[in-house]
């Protein structure tokens, strides 16, 4: 059986909200090392994945590997019943057809129980090689959200050009064109021990618009803004986003979720026809 106790419902709520518009249903793979998930959107352009490590839970028990097929819209509904600061216990018996949730208020004065029906899903997994990227960009997640929103006002795709001078995001459309250049700033690394605020409003003041860029080779990549905007739904979970890119392969966009794990998205690039 699986029994996992998570101190903050907001983490699970946030993860589900940041995936549910990209993926309708998928398997949660549970093992003694944690809970993971990987699924593509219907058009096979974007892949969403997350990992919640066993050590990140207050208590975690998984006797044997389980694949729990869930529909994200159902999960989202159930999790709306939890308050952000509730403790969540997730429980599934071996070979069960339901997934049980217990929400406990922090003062233990209220305990709610819900369950959702599990689905049999033939999940299609992709084998994603561990790869070194030519360019790794780290910026505040709220800045990334604003950037994607701003670019979307003008165009449908964004071109990321990373070079020695910095990284430039540019777009164009019917009404005109726009670009934003970020120069490398090391200050972004200084504030990780700062306010600890989660995304909104930036963190630690000076680095809110900073951008750290590690570059091995210049990279130029065109990406769909529709998907990037979907990825920014994970921004409330993390102060920072890390965008890893190489020419002509899918970009990886990662949001670390506290000490418990991460949400990672892959997006296939647009290339010359």
């Amino acid at each position: 059986m699986l029994e996992a106790r998570l101190l903050q419902a907001s983490i699970l709520k946030g993860i589900v909200e940041s995936v549910k518009d990209l993926v309708r249903e998928a398997n949660f793979d549970c093992s003694d090392s944690g809970i993971s998930f990987q699924a593509m959107d219907e058009s096979n352009v974007a892949l969403s994945s997350f990992l919640l490590r066993a050590e990140g839970f207050e208590t975690y028990r998984c006797d044997r590997n389980l694949s729990l097929g869930v529909r994200f819209s159902s999960l989202s509904k159930i999790l709306k019943c939890a308050n952000n600061d509730d403790i969540v216990v997730i429980r599934a018996e071996d070979d069960a057809d339901v997934l049980n949730f217990v929400f406990e208020s922090p003062d233990e004065s209220k305990i709610s129980e819900y369950q959702i029906k599990l689905l049999d899903i033939d999940g299609e997994h992709l084998s994603i090689p561990e790869q070194e990227f030519d360019c790794v960009i780290k910026m505040s997640s709220s800045e990334f959200s604003k950037l994607c929103r701003d670019m979307t006002l003008l165009g449908q795709t964004v071109v990321i050009d990373a070079a020695k001078e910095g990284v430039k995001f540019s777009t164009y459309g019917d009404i005109g064109a726009g670009s934003v250049l970020y120069k490398h700033s090391s200050s972004i690394d200084d504030s990780s021990s700062g306010s600890g605020g989660k995304g909104r409003g930036g963190s630690g003041g000076m680095s809110a618009r900073g951008c750290s860029i590690e570059l091995r080779e210049p990279v130029s990549l065109e990406l769909s803004l529709k998907y990037l905007n979907n990825f920014t739904k994970a921004a409330p979970l993390s102060d920072y986003v890390v965008i890893s890119a190489s020419n002509e392969i899918p970009v990886m966009v990662q949001f670390d979720v506290g000490d418990i794990g991460y949400i990672r998205y892959y997006l296939a690039p647009q290339i010359k026809d």
Binding site: S43, N44, V45, H125, S127, I128, I249, Q270, I271
Partner: peptide, 14 residues
Amino acid sequence: AKKQTILSTYFLKL
């Protein structure tokens, strides 16, 4: 013109 690629072009399906 640019064409949207799909992930299975790059990653192996298991």
